[in-house]
Write a protein that binds this DNA or RNA. Structure first.
Lengths: 113, 113
DNA sequence: CATATCTACAACCATTTGGTTGCAGGAAAG
DNA sequence: CTTTCCTGCAACCAAATGGTTGTAGATATG
């Protein structure tokens, strides 16, 4: 499971529309940084920083090819975030179950009339 | 689907271990702010701010009961984030599919030897 | 070689974040 | 009524965020 501080980095990285889009583009196929930068109304350096945030979170890796740096996705990390949210929902469903048990128990022992 | 700026708020809210824990406690059962605050090494006001961030993201709502304010979860918003990550994975799987198609096409037409 | 392209990194700046303390109001308990 | 508890809000502060510009190195291209 994602350790707590990586979870912090992953969700922080996802909390920005530009970074989410960069991730989508990388998922579609490897892109270099300046090609990515052409899609957004900001400097190349700003996009470099966004990629660095995604990389620190383990959501993408960079791979040199000649003078360019290809950004490609780490799907496993996306799944890690996915699983964390799944666990949150499991807590919720567990609570529902416990309520169900209580109701069943109530029904079994029945409130003395 | 979550609008872009709500997605920003949701992932930002999840990018903090204290806030994720608050969400878990709320999922276990409604808690008031000062009961939550006792669990963390910080002031009540700090926890109030964390709850406000979760509330702005739509992850929890507050409901007054007498002098206390019960924090209870909005599971639908958790599922919204869930779905967004699902979509990311779908992009990835779509790419895999396209690669599969290409390979199949390569196999069909075959590279002329 | 000369020039253009892709990247890295530093310095700088405004804004946001995440904490603090202090104060005031409403509800519960003595 | 007085006191205690829970909450809301404002002011303040250090650190992080998200952008900029500028400089420099390495690789392609003419």
């Amino acid at each position: 499971m994602l350790p707590n501080d990586q979870a912090n980095r992953v969700f922080h990285a996802l909390a920005d529309a530009t970074r989410r889009d960069i991730l989508v583009r990388a998922l579609e196929g490897p892109r270099n940084v300046s090609a990515l930068a052409r899609r957004y109304p900001m400097s190349v350096a700003a996009v470099q920083k966004h990629v660095a945030v995604l990389e620190a979170a383990g959501l993408v890796s960079k791979q040199r090819r000649g003078r360019e740096q290809l950004v490609h996705p780490n799907v496993d990390t996306v799944r890690g975030a996915y699983r964390l949210l799944e666990q949150l929902e499991a807590v919720w469903l567990g609570r529902i179950d416990r309520i169900g048990e209580l109701l069943a128990a109530d029904h079994d022992t029945g409130p003395t009339p």
